[in-house]
Amino acid sequence: MDPLVLIFLTSGLFLGWALGANDAANVFGTAVGTKMVKFRTAAIICSVFVILGALISGAGASHTLGKLGAISALPGAFMTALAAAAAVFSMTKSGLPVSTSQAIVGAIIGWNFFSGNPTDSNTLTKILLTWVLCPVLAAIIAVILFKSLKLYSKLFPVHLIRADAYTRIGLIMAGAFGAYSLGANNIANVVGVFIPAKPFPDLVFGTWVFSSTQQLFLMGGLAIAIGVFTYSKGVMMTVGGNLGRLSATAAFIAVMSHSIVLFLFASRGLEAWLAGQGLPTIPLVPVSSSQAVVGAIVGISILQGTSGIRWATLGKIVAGWVATPFAAGIICFIGLFFLQNVFGLVVK
């Protein structure tokens, strides 16, 4: 294999590392921050399920990104992922909430502009609508789950100590599901842009073929897992602290709602089933894990009627929707210009 391939892949792997470092906190932050689950346990479960989600269900959302812009040259894919990573890094540095999904979409559009490729407006509209739908849907699911759980606990009271044990198991299961959904939905952000370039030959083991795409998903999943192990502990503690007012049960509901939303936007099986029933399908689009969690928490807050909606947080999310893709697009466009004209690489 050409060693250059690995060098080009580093930008995607870096993006995967950043995703693992930041988004694992959405899945296990409250559980670890409140010491309901040990970090080691959380990190192992998170890593295993992120990789499983990426390998088993990662293709759906990746396909949509491919439709937005099929980057067939590796240097182009490298710069697209690097631009997204740079946008994520700089936005994080300036304290703005950021989503790798929004960064990668902006970077792909930047590549489209540079290479003169038309951007599929249908796909783009679908993606933009999904970003608004994601936190709203998470809030609705959180409200339904919260009401159901409250009714259930009133009808079937459980001893406080036993309820604590159930909550711990619930948090671990919701975290595993969340990690699976995160891998399934967000692996597209990490390695999706490299898929059309087919950087690896297919590996054949008897009747079983380990395709280039699957190899990319595995590498991306491993990068996310390394991000979880090396950097997410601090973020988890911060998330646990920030969301300190949430009870363990509310945290379970927030993680569960987030996970359901990410799963809905990644499941090909569900899409096929809905289509089979003649129902409208849910677009398979990479969505923001952080915004799903915030949406769920806002839903719970509205229901509890304590603090209502945090307008400042919502304002920041909207700012993120606009600023992140623009920043990534511009960085990508400038980067591609340099790659092509200074280093003489083929980027389109």
């Binding site: 409140t34 010491k35 406080l160 604590d164 009870s247 363990a248």
Partner: peptide, 11 residues
């Protein structure tokens, strides 16, 4: 065992 973090103080 860091049980019932929300209600430990109360209990």
């Amino acid at each position: 065992n860091t049980l019932i973090p929300d209600s430990r103080g109360d209990v």
